[in-house]
Design a protein around this nucleic acid. Structure first.
Lengths: 388, 388
DNA sequence: AAGCAGTACTAAATCGCTTTACCACAGATT
DNA sequence: AATCTGTGGTAAAGCGATTTAGTACTGCTT
């Protein structure tokens, strides 16, 4: 280990990395939490116990050592190899006793690493983003990273501004969720459901070919031939790829896609209302269909309501398939059949990928795409078409 | 203005505040974004245009001035009053030209302010937290603050650890959402739905008396007398207050609360399953009821399903009232009658309150509670009880 | 001619940590 | 006796800002 560090030109950074991961001073010191500060025990040179944390200098002073020494020992630097264990123990004990915590800014300023990443999403309160974030968070916090969040709400200027502001705050990397991404950034970027090939950007995407396949196969096997579709909004980064794959798979299955049986979601709202409106448009075309494949679960819910309002029964008259498998899909009435995206998993993979890239930045030979598999969840909104 | 600054002992901080708010250098420089860097125009001393940003020193060097001067001018310090406009313009122009951005860590290190706040929630992907966060974010980003998020998932150790880690990262303040809060922290804390009186903590809470009143009044006016209740989990910070108010209001309305008609949510899952199970328990008591007041919309959905599964019709046999008014409440079938909490608004108020307290820390004489009003949203799950 | 008041700046001290390049000394080797 | 080889450290130079306490100069009074 020591030799590795010594041989490695990046040893400085490695050491810091180590200092901030599981077996680090943070972890070790954290476990100690003394019950009560009854520190009348000697030590009149002791750093004052007040609100303010002790600095490295104060700690060193109290120990009668130089700040450099203390820093080296605390960071487990290989330079400190020659320091006797006894001294090291003294230092560590004092650090624990006075709850020494390196000042984060000072450290980051010097090391040029912030252990912070930025996450940009269309909207935090949207289920899709939130689930991805949950996965991202899982991995990041575990690894000692924190993250900033910003919602752009599809405003182009914010999609530009926030990443820039993030970079000004020295993030080590960025994750863009469901956000069109075209620019390379000065830090590693990982997207979730981004589909552009951009230099320095890794995309985590669903296997849309498979998604289209499982959904359409399910419907055709039930006997459906007239299938209507609700396409996503222009701004949604999945819309295009998803649609292309639906067309491809439909072709392969010998299904014709009737243009008047395709409606696109219009407007930017997280409510099922958009799906409702799209379905109303679909019905207005007076072209019969026995199944509907919606862009997501939310729009599927709106669609079901629209179908009901039009006097149609789901699934007897029309089968409906959603997309995503959000929490409430299972508790719709009837339960929604849907293509499940492993959103949390995707978030976790995004975080893992990003940290991996951050860690070996320099020799950053990342692949540009990682694919995850969807799963069809069959519930109660799909059934064979009514015989007539 | 200048005089104010001069007279104010906190002028340093005020200046920084100013420098980071709307009309700051950030805002001003941001608008300029030159189309193309065709800078073959003289200036051989020019800082190199590369990946790395220019530092204050480089900028100063290029201008033939001291870093101090440049810093003072850029921060609009009143000390720079005596500097002629011409020089100021030169400095500002150069800053813009070379896209100068103060290094965030350096600045924070010195100013001991991070313009970052921490937000701790039970779980990001939970609708309640996400909506509050959305409101928090709105206000924070607008004011030039960023935020960290951490989900504790009701683990007591994490509820302890994360705030501490946040503080180590020098957050300026913390917002705790739906999280039991008992310790004072070294920075201002604002809770959303926290109900403990803790020093240095401001609670943003719903007017639970009013919430109980609107819901129960609605049900009694419809004619309901046998009302069942689903109480929240122990760990939910609203459970206790909400229940106390329900009891109080029930008493005032002359409603008896039958113990066997009260079920408590059990377990930690964001799914309606918990409400389903609670309702099954309620039904097992074989004590008739004509209405059910659930702890939240999610559990109300589960409850509705359980009632259906038991052969009961909603609202004909049993009326159901939810709580929160989450996005999908309106698109349930039938649409869910519920007590709406203005979650986003609460988040926004929390952020406003926190920033206000941060800004006048020192003379921090905050009130310890702010109340917001609920609203009853009547949809289709409530109706008069069946006549028999 | 000395004193004062602006004006236009700047030097230098922090902020708290990291890290490289030493240094002093003891004992072993030539 | 001179040199080498560890030990056990330390001094000091950053990282990139902010901010206080000056300085040097000019022009105007008294």
């Amino acid at each position: 280990m020591k030799n590795v560090l010594k041989a490695d030109v990046n040893s400085g950074i490695l050491i810091i990395l180590r200092a901030c991961s599981r077996d680090s001073i943070y972890a070790r010191l954290r476990t100690v939490t003394p019950k009560r500060d009854r520190s009348n025990d000697g030590g009149r040179t002791a750093p004052r116990k007040g609100k303010k944390p002790v600095s490295l200098k104060e700690l060193a002073e109290h120990l009668g050592l130089a700040p450099a020494t203390v820093s080296l020992v605390i960071n487990r630097s290989s330079v400190a190899d020659s320091i006797p264990q006894e001294t090291k123990d003294r230092i560590l004990a004092a650090a624990r006793k006075y709850k020494y915590r390196p000042n984060f800014f000072a450290r980051s300023l010097r090391a040029r690493r912030s252990f912070t990443i930025g996450v940009i999403v269309p909207e935090v309160s949207d289920g899709y983003s939130a689930h991805v974030m949950s996965g991202v968070e899982d991995h990041l916090l575990q690894e000692g990273y924190f993250y900033f969040v910003a919602s752009h709400r599809h405003r182009a200027d914010l999609i530009d501004d926030y990443p820039r502001l993030f970079v000004e705050r020295s993030i080590d990397g960025l994750i863009a969720v469901d956000t069109p991404w075209t620019l390379p950034l000065s830090v590693p970027v990982v997207t979730v459901s981004g589909h552009n090939q951009v230099k320095g950007v890794t995309n985590i995407v669903l296997d849309h070919a498979r998604a289209a396949e499982v959904a359409l196969q399910h419907l055709t096997r039930l006997g459906h031939r007239q299938i209507a579709f609700i396409k996503g909004q222009e701004f949604s980064s999945d819309t295009e790829v998803r649609w292309a794959n639906i067309e491809k798979v439909a072709g392969r299955l010998g299904l014709a896609i009737t243009p008047s049986l395709v409606a696109q979601l219009q407007g930017d709202s997280p409510s099922p209302q958009l799906g409702y409106a799209a379905t109303v448009r679909l019905l207005a075309a007076h072209k019969p269909f026995t199944a509907l494949f919606a862009f997501n679960d939310i729009s599927a819910m709106g669609a079901i309501r629209a179908l009901r309002d039009a006097g149609l029964s789901v699934p007897k008259d029309v089968s409906v398939v959603g997309f995503d498998d959000i929490q409430s899909a299972a508790y719709q009435n009837p339960g929604l059949t849907t293509v499940r995206q492993p959103l949390r998993e995707m978030g976790r993979i995004a975080a893992e990928t990003l940290l991996r890239r951050i860690r070996r930045s320099g020799s950053d030979s990342h692949s540009s795409e990682t694919t995850v598999e969807p799963e069809l969840i069959i519930r109660e909104t799909t059934a064979p078409p009514r015989q007539h």
